[in-house]
Simulated assay, not measured.
Amino acid sequence: MERFTAEVNQVENVVMVRLSGELDANTAVSADDALQEAIATAPSKALLIDCTDLHYISSAGLGVILSSLHACKQNNIQVMFCGLQPKIINVFSILGLQKIIDTAPTEADALKLLNNDSGTSIDKP
């Protein structure tokens, strides 16, 4: 099993959470802690979730993501995902999440959109 990490950083006016490894029942608390920290500190009301190195997500991981999306909606925080891997895109697509999340192919594309506050997605999975 690949080691899971969740790092919170601020890039320009955006709080970014980098998820890597496998997000499952064993790592969901760590992911939730990182996402809650990011939501609490989002200065410009923009959150980027970088999934470039996220290779697996379970139902527990999806629960964390959905809970975070709900918290962001309540706090008027724009959320964007970037770097979604094909397996993750497939899971999101099966669940219909591509209809409610904004995505960008790369971190640079996402930061450009979030810093311009366009609120539009350049890439739907």
Rank of each mutant, 00 (worst) to 15 (best):
Asp50Cys: 04
Thr5Arg: 11
Leu84Met: 14
Ile57Trp: 01
Leu54Ala: 09
Ser67Glu: 05
Glu37Ala: 11
Asp123Lys: 13
Ala25Asp: 07
Asn115Gln: 10
Glu22Trp: 10
Gly21Val: 08
Thr41Leu: 11
Ser58Glu: 08
Thr106Trp: 06
Asp102Met: 13
Glu7Lys: 15
Val17Ile: 09
Val91Tyr: 05
Thr5Cys: 07
Gln78Pro: 00
Ala28Leu: 02
Arg3Val: 14
Val15Leu: 11
Ser59Ile: 06
Ile65Tyr: 08
Asp32Thr: 07
Gln78Phe: 04
Leu114Glu: 03
Ile100Trp: 01
Asn90Phe: 11
Asn13Arg: 14
Leu97Thr: 01
Tyr56Val: 07
Ser30Asp: 13
Lys99Gln: 14
Thr5Leu: 10
Glu37Gln: 15
Val14Ala: 05
Ser59Trp: 06
Pro43Gly: 08
Ile77Arg: 03
Arg3Asn: 14
Met80His: 08
Ala108Val: 12
Asp123Asn: 13
Thr5Gly: 08
Gly83Glu: 08
His70Val: 04
Glu7His: 13
Ser67Ile: 00
Pro105His: 12
Ala28Pro: 03
Val29Asp: 13
Lys124Ala: 12
Gln85Ile: 05
Lys87Trp: 09
Leu48Phe: 02
Glu22His: 12
Ala25Arg: 08
Gln36Ile: 11
Gly63Met: 02
Asp24Cys: 05
Gln36Pro: 00
Gln10Ser: 11
Ile77His: 04
Asp102Leu: 11
Gly63Arg: 12
Phe92Leu: 03
Ala25Gln: 09
Ile65Thr: 05
Glu107Thr: 13
Thr106His: 06
Ile94Lys: 01
Ile49Ser: 00
Arg18Ile: 06
Ile89Phe: 05
Ile89Cys: 14
Ser58Trp: 08
Arg18Val: 08
Ala110Ser: 09
Ser68His: 03
Ala104Pro: 01
Gln98Ala: 10
Leu62Lys: 04
Asn90Ala: 14
Gly96Ile: 02
Val29Tyr: 08
Ser121Ala: 12
Arg3Leu: 12
Tyr56Gln: 05
Val14Ser: 09
Val17Pro: 06
Glu2Gly: 10
Gly61Ala: 04
Leu114Asp: 00
Phe81Lys: 04
Ile88Phe: 07
Thr103Asn: 07
Glu7Asn: 15
Gln74Arg: 14
Pro43Tyr: 10
Gln36Val: 13
Asn115Ser: 11
Leu97Gly: 01
Asp53Trp: 09
Pro86Met: 10
Pro86Val: 06
Leu97Pro: 00
Lys112Glu: 13
Leu48Glu: 01
Cys72Asn: 06
Asp24Lys: 03
Thr106Val: 01
Ile122Gln: 07
Ala31Lys: 03
His55Asp: 12
Pro105Gly: 02
Ile88Pro: 02
Asp117Trp: 05
Gly63Gln: 08
Gly96Val: 09
Ala46Thr: 14
Pro105Ala: 12
Ala38Pro: 02
Asp109Gly: 09
Cys51Phe: 08
Asn26Met: 12
Thr103Pro: 01
Gly61Met: 06
Leu23Ser: 02
Asn75His: 14
Lys45Phe: 11
Gly21Met: 09
Ile77Pro: 02
Lys45Trp: 09
Thr27Tyr: 05
Cys51Met: 14
Lys87Glu: 14
Glu37Asn: 13
Ser59Phe: 05
Leu19Asp: 03
Val64Phe: 04
Ser118Gln: 13
Glu2Arg: 15
Ile39Pro: 00
Ile49Gln: 01
Asp24Ile: 03
Thr41Glu: 13
